[in-house]
């Protein structure tokens, strides 16, 4: 044991274990989408090849394999008028190491006219940062169990924000989200689709997913420290997809405005 301590084997093992990323659960990809895999990102393309001119670029959560988001985001890719979704691969699966990547991806997709950025957990934090850095490039921001860091102020940003959180999220509680409200555009809480504000008004719409948790925004099992969800992964993904679609429709992005 002493030898292990002296040679630094124990700290190394702790470091390696802390660097492990969550692997996705089995991938079941709907036939209505085609997945293209590249070095830097995963592209989810509606098989019909007909889609809205507004795309969604997405940052995965910290130490979560990007493939874990294919299944839930495929639902949004085929929802409504259908959408191009791009999941960015991060170095070491940590968005903090390449936070501006989304602002350079547009070159590869000339048929997408405007972008909304989304992120889960640490991915959401970095999505806020890239919006702060390139405010004119993104039209909207979708946060899944995430909030901006204190150095990021999007309060007067002209875009719209959708902030989602699971009711039983054991990692990001409502208090944490509330304490960063001042860094996002004017808040608006909804409890269902009927409360959703109509029209394109720059504001942050907050919604708590009843029975949802942190891990079910992706498809990688249960993250350590997370609460137990009372709805299925499928149900949470379905609800998230519908809410993002509503967000697109109300902001006029669904039909390429």
């Amino acid at each position: 044991m002493k030898l292990f301590k002296k040679t630094g084997l124990i700290p190394s093992l702790v470091f390696f274990i802390a660097s492990c990323s969550y692997l996705p659960d089995d991938l079941i990809i709907p036939s209505a989408v085609t997945i293209y895999e590249y070095r830097d990102y995963i592209e989810i393309n509606p098989t019909s090849n007909q889609y809205s001119k507004t795309g969604l670029v997405f940052y995965p959560g910290g130490l979560v394999d990007p493939h874990a988001y294919i299944q839930p985001l495929s639902k949004f890719a085929i929802a409504g008028k259908a959408h191009k979704v791009v999941i960015v691969k991060m170095p070491g699966n940590l968005a903090v190491l390449d936070g501006n990547k989304a602002a350079w991806i547009y070159n590869d997709f000339p048929d997408v006219q405007q972008w909304v950025i989304g992120g889960h957990s640490l991915g959401g934090v970095m999505a806020c940062s890239v919006v702060d850095k390139y405010p004119d490039f993104f039209k909207g921001l979708v946060l899944m169990a995430a909030y901006p860091r204190s150095s990021t102020n999007l309060n007067d940003w002209s875009g719209s924000v959708l902030s989602l959180r699971g009711q039983y999220d054991g990692l990001v509680d409502s208090l944490k989200i509330s304490s960063y409200i001042g860094l996002l555009p004017t808040p608006w809480w909804i409890h269902g689709f009927s409360d959703y504000p109509e029209g394109k008004v720059p504001k942050t719409v907050y919604f708590t997913i009843p029975g949802g948790n942190h891990s079910q925004f992706g498809n990688y099992g249960i993250q350590k420290g997370d609460g137990v969800a009372t709805i299925t992964h499928e149900a949470q993904a379905e609800l998230v997809s519908s809410l993002i679609l509503k967000f697109f429709i109300e902001n006029g992005w669904e039909y390429g405005n």
Binding site: F16, S19, C20, S21, R39, D40, D65, P66, K89, M90, P91, G92, N93, L94, L97
Partner: peptide
């Protein structure tokens, strides 16, 4: 060797 690579960490 420990490397931080695109979407993985490797030893």
């Amino acid at each position: 060797e420990f490397s931080v690579l695109r979407s993985r960490n490797e030893v």
